[in-house]
Design a protein around this nucleic acid. Structure first.
Lengths: 106, 106
DNA sequence: TCTATATGATACCTTTTGGTATTATGTCAA
DNA sequence: TTGACATAATACCAAAAGGTATCATATAGA
């Protein structure tokens, strides 16, 4: 849980997840898509792994990083606790629109 | 988006959100529930506000912090992109169980 | 008005984070 | 075996995070 949110806090790591959602990639593959060094990418991948957002499999001299949605799911579940709050808010918005349809651009 | 995930990365801030989900609270109210100084709590609340997870309203000499689920929703929406991955994974798990029910503890 | 209280604003400290550069290790392929 | 390549491991650096202590400001209430 903590590891997952920690991993998600960095925009580069979130981008990496989007890339990995298409297909698994080696560290070099990932690094080619960013302007940072392979070493920095490796650190990000380690943090993603600690957060259980990816899993890593060695194959020959390469290590393939694959999406492992377990951590993503735990984060989504945590956020799910608050669903009711924005549901209510959407209801409020809806009735506000219905009650004030006469108003124009404001 | 970025602000939301940054705000969610810290466990104290996530706890604060849970508290605020019950009712709005002043800074002092929040601080009484943690072992850190009011100044530290104030910093957390500022970061939560920057991530649009709370809104603050001054009333007299107090400032009331209220849940503002907009940022939570944007984070949940981002995670929603990956729904299909853990759905598929659950399917995989299900068929794996069905196909290998004979196996015991492994 | 005077005082206690709730908060704001700084300054400062330590640890973590995101990054680089460098060196070492393991593996593929000629 | 040897050279090229993919990654690992370290050491190091600057900036951000999370925290404290301190002082200033504003307001509720006697």
């Amino acid at each position: 849980m903590q590891g997952a949110f920690r991993a998600l806090a960095d925009p580069t790591r979130r981008q990496i997840l989007k890339h990995l959602s298409r297909h698994e990639m080696s560290i070099g593959d990932v690094a080619n898509r960013f302007d940072i060094t392979r070493a920095a990418v490796k650190k990000h991948l380690t943090i993603l792994e600690e957060g259980r957002l990816i899993s890593v499999t060695a194959r020959g001299r390469e290590r393939f990083n694959r999406l492992e949605p377990e951590g993503l799911k735990s984060a989504a579940d945590w956020l799910g606790f608050f669903d009711r709050f924005w549901d209510h808010r959407l209801d409020d918005l809806k009735s506000a629109i219905e009650n004030h349809e006469k108003k124009s651009n404001d």
